[in-house]
Design a binder for these strands. Sequence first.
DNA 1: CAGTATCCAGGAAGATACTG
DNA 2: CAGTATCTTCCTGGATACTG
Lengths: 121, 121
Amino acid sequence: MRAPLDPDMFDPLCPSELMPMRIGDKWAGMVIRCLEHGPRRFSELRVPIRGVTAKALTKSLRGLERDGLVSRTAHTGRVEYDLTPLGRSLLHPLAVMCAWAQDHWEELIDAREAQTAAATA
Amino acid sequence: MRAPLDPDMFDPLCPSELMPMRIGDKWAGMVIRCLEHGPRRFSELRVPIRGVTAKALTKSLRGLERDGLVSRTAHTGRVEYDLTPLGRSLLHPLAVMCAWAQDHWEELIDAREAQTAAATA
DNA sequence: CAGTATCCAGGAAGATACTG
DNA sequence: CAGTATCTTCCTGGATACTG
């Protein structure tokens, strides 16, 4: 819960850009994973979700709020984001997606390379 | 296999626009479902996938091809698209996503309405 | 039939600067 | 700290017309 988020939890070595499945917008899946073990503050989220601007993260969070997946609570002097029960119910589909990615990542990469090779030839 | 695709299989009553999960781009999930029971031709796909322009469908198909999820075969005088084994392996995650949507659709709609009401007030 | 070509409008997202 | 405001660029995607 209170452990800080690992700055490398979305290391570029796991290039989610290539993922053919997605939850919400570009950042929403990462936000959900960050909230998996308890509430987090805005600037906490910015650490592992590298390269996200305040604007983009705000928009993603607003979208998740609008869909009832994430709650925003303003305490005195700080703001916390947390998963709602509905958001938490997404963890299972998300896990299935991640499992698929692990199982088929090689094939995915190979297919892309074959395609690139064919295009170059 | 040979049965024509139901033109209403993606009826607006199932507004996939609201779906917070997605496979590939805007149309890819629908393409995959269309190919579930066997190969289809370009213009067959355009029937249930309403409102897709040739350009958008082409782009979606090219993306799926590039990722090795769909194969394109030019027979004499016709072109057929089919799922590859890799593409077929996506059917399970896709089913999980659809099951989630069925289970939580009400909550999702309610959350949106509550949000809209709050914004209006 | 199965696309390609061209034009255009709207949204996504980065950079940067600023605020209660 | 938790954003908002502005500007700009990129990209998506729709409309339309055309082609082998």
